[in-house]
């Protein structure tokens, strides 16, 4: 199935998985950093608001790598668009457009609500798909297994309810 982005064909999952593993291992072996992206939200918050929680040492110590890494994520998405048919601002949202058909304002509100859950949830759990799902599971950490099962359950239940009940 083609991607929403330029209708491009995706990489084979094994190639993508190898790429994710290569970056994860490189980050640890070269820079001694464990992959984890959601704490980047805290780094950005720390730039704007003064809160004791965002001033803790363990977070500040990671800022010199995580902020540039997150900037790289944006750049990587941009280069992916440019090299797959061109960069162009878009509102297109695949299945959601067919099922709901919200306009731009509705989509912004929908995404903002999703973001609230993502920000609060990942920080309460101490990590997301990358920190717990990839690094933590690979490092055989029990809290990461608990978190990964929890967010998969949360996602499966929500999507099943949305697409099999609410949008139907």
């Amino acid at each position: 199935m083609p991607l929403i982005l330029n209708n491009a064909l995706p990489l084979h999952w094994a190639v993508g998985g190898a790429g994710i593993a290569a970056v994860t291992l490189c980050l640890l072996f070269v820079a001694n950093r464990r992959l984890g992206i959601s704490a980047g939200f805290e780094d950005v918050c720390a730039l704007v608001v003064q809160q004791p929680y965002f001033a803790r040492g363990s977070l500040r110590a990671a800022r010199p790598w995580r902020l540039p890494f997150v900037a790289g994520l944006v750049l990587g998405g941009f280069l992916s668009a440019v090299s797959s048919g061109g960069w162009e601002p878009t509102w297109s949202l695949g299945m959601f457009d067919q099922a709901v058909g919200l306009g731009p304002a509705g989509k912004l509100a929908w995404m903002f609500v999703g973001g609230l859950f993502i920000g609060f949830g990942t920080r309460l759990a101490g990590g997301c798909t990358s920190g717990h799902g990839i690094f933590g599971l690979s490092n055989l950490e029990l809290p990461s297994l608990v978190t990964t099962i929890s967010f998969m359950v949360g996602g499966v239940v929500t999507t099943q309810v949305l697409y099999r009940v609410v949008f139907n």
């Binding site: 944006v74 998405g77 609060f120 949830g121 759990a125 717990h132 929500t158």
Partner: peptide
Amino acid sequence: GGLLFGVGWSIAGMCPGPIFVNIGEGK
């Protein structure tokens, strides 16, 4: 936290990394 994040991942269709990637893609 995991359950709440899962709900958000489903609603937005993005986890934290892809939020930044999708901004770069122009979404």
